[in-house]
Every structure is written in structure tokens, then in C-alpha cells.
């Protein structure tokens, strides 16, 4: 140690010694080489996409209130748009699930067209409800008999689901259309369909609640009279003049005759029976 004649040494003076520390010779050349190599690697390597997003996090954290308000607004708008678009959810009926597998572009098509495709693809002809062809674009439904003009083909196209929704007092949203299509093409009598629709078999009684909605839906084959009935009615009109005059082929007498006479016997007896305005003749 030096004597007390020397100037005082403070902590600042000691720290100035550190300022004078120098690395050994050759250090900076090695430093530059390594830095150049790292620089080249940094230029060549592709930075991941989330690096740029990661830099936004501090800025977002710094302003939590505006960011939160903006996020809430965006979520609200998106939720509202989703609600309005009526996008089908997962777990609904099989036809809708099949429709969900189609590309997103097809969701922009009209619902009747989708319904026609779904019906054609999924339901056999004997189960085809009468209301479904009316949903197809090839079979437009007229708004009222008075406004229709089938002759010139200028009848106004009316969406049956929209008309149904309007009559029921609902807004004709596209989600309602999808629900209507599902109801139309799904056999609601089966418990599987009820389970597919609502997920809870115990909470839904298929035969009671929704049967009334399907009441107007009839099998078109069931509504057609068999050809034999028409033929019998024609023969009976000749055989029974009173019944023919009335024109009622389903009268009590004709019913009894129909039950008694088979088709073969009727064919054989055609030439033996004769009828005129005031007489009835039988040839033997």
C-alpha cells in the first residue's frame, strides 16, 4: 500500500479500472469471424411465422381495455353473422350431416336445390313425402290459385318453407329452411331419427309431437286409385244403369258386386249383360 500522501481512491475510481479492461489481441478478429457466420445464418434461415405475432403481444398487453373491447366487438359481430347465416351444427340429422361434407362453396346455393339433392340421395321413392317435390326448384309452388298462370309459365316462384314460416309467424331464416327440409326427408316415426335430431331419446316422443306436422304429407302412391277400380266402375256403369247415372262407382251396390264378382267373371259376362235406358237384359 502506498502512504497517506497519495490522493484518495473512491469506488468510482475503482470502477474506472474496469473501463480500462481490454480483451487480448486477436479477440476482435475472431469475434468478427463468428459474427459474420452468425449473420449469414440469420440471413439464410427462415423465421417462423409466429415470431412476428409474438412481437405484438407486449403491445396488446400494454392496452388491455381497447384490445378487450375490440375483441368483444369482433366476437359479437362474428356470433351475430353466424346466427344469421344459420350454419348447421354438428350432430343433426343424417341428410344435413351429408350436406355438411360438401364444400363450403355449395352452402351458398339455394336451400330448395340442396333439399332436392338431399332427398334424391337419401330417401327411397316409396318414402318420398309429397311436400318434398314442392321444395325442388323444378316444381315451384304458387302463392295462391288466383295469381297462378300455368299456361304461359309466368307463375311466381314462392319458397314453400318461407310461406310456411310466414304462415306460422316466423322469420323465414335459412336455418328454418334446413329444419323443414330435415323434417320432410326424415322418417320421424323411428326412434333413431328422433335420437339423431335431438340427441336425447327420452326427451322426444316422435309419434305425438311431430306427427301433426307431417299430417299433410301423404304417400303419392297411396293417393292413386288402382286401375282395377276404374275398370270395375266402367263395367258396373254398364251393368247398373242407376249407378252409372249417378256416376258413383263406390255405391253400396257396386261394392257388393265388386266383392262378389271377380275380374275373370266380369270379363266373361260383359257380352251377356245388356242395358239400356229402361231395361236390363241378360243373355244365357
Amino acid at each position: 500500500m502506498k502512504s497517506d500522501r497519495n490522493p484518495p481512491v473512491s469506488i468510482e475510481n475503482l470502477l474506472q479500472l474496469k473501463r480500462a479492461e481490454r480483451p487480448p489481441a486477436g479477440f476482435w478478429s475472431e469475434f468478427d469471424k463468428e459474427l459474420r457466420a452468425k449473420q449469414l445464418v440469420a440471413i439464410m434461415e427462415r423465421r417462423p411465422w409466429w415470431v412476428s405475432w409474438r412481437r405484438l403481444i407486449p403491445a396488446l398487453v400494454r392496452h388491455p381495455l381497447p384490445v378487450g373491447a375490440a375483441a368483444a366487438l369482433v366476437l359479437s359481430v362474428l356470433g351475430f353473422q353466424h346466427f344469421r347465416s344459420g350454419a348447421p351444427r354438428a350432430g343433426v340429422t343424417a341428410p344435413v350431416a351429408a350436406a355438411e361434407k360438401t364444400p363450403a362453396v355449395e352452402t351458398e346455393r339455394s336451400v330448395p336445390a340442396m333439399a332436392a339433392e338431399v332427398v334424391a340421395a337419401s330417401s327411397p321413392s316409396n318414402r318420398l313425402p309429397a311436400a318434398v317435390p314442392a321444395l325442388a326448384p323444378s316444381a315451384p309452388v304458387q302463392a295462391s290459385p288466383g295469381t297462378a298462370n300455368p299456361g304461359n309459365g309466368t307463375s311466381e316462384r314462392v319458397d314453400p318453407v318461407a310461406a310456411l314460416a310466414e304462415a306460422a309467424g316466423f322469420a323465414p331464416a335459412s336455418s328454418l329452411r334446413l329444419v323443414a327440409v330435415n323434417f320432410a326427408v326424415t322418417p320421424l316415426d323411428s326412434p333413431e331419427a328422433a335420437r339423431n335430431l335431438f340427441g336425447q331419446p327420452s326427451a322426444f316422443v316422435a309419434g305425438n309431437h311431430f306427427q301433426s306436422m307431417r299430417a299433410p304429407v301423404l304417400d303419392p302412391l297411396a293417393r292413386m286409385a288402382p286401375p282395377s277400380n276404374e275398370r270395375r266402375a266402367r263395367i258396373l256403369a254398364e251393368v247398373v244403369p242407376a249407378a252409372a247415372a249417378v256416376g258413383d262407382a263406390t255405391s253400396v251396390l257396386s261394392d257388393r258386386l265388386i266383392r262378389r264378382l271377380s275380374d275373370e267373371r266380369l270379363d266373361e259376362s260383359i257380352s251377356r249383360y245388356g242395358a239400356s235406358a229402361d231395361r236390363f237384359s241378360v243373355k244365357f
Binding site: 502506498k2 481512491v9 474506472q16 479500472l17 480500462a20 479492461e21 487480448p24
Partner: peptide, 21 residues
């Protein structure tokens, strides 16, 4: 690791001379 102090700098030389002879 310790680096060498550059005593060519006047400040460091003065401090070292003040601390020891």
C-alpha cells in the same frame, strides 16, 4: 474471466499508482 487492464490510459494508471507503489 479477467481481462488485462490497459495501463496506457491515464485514469487507470493514476488509480493504480494511487493504490500501490
Amino acid at each position: 474471466s479477467l481481462e488485462r487492464i490497459d495501463e496506457s490510459e491515464p485514469v487507470s494508471k493514476e488509480v493504480i499508482e494511487a493504490l500501490t507503489d
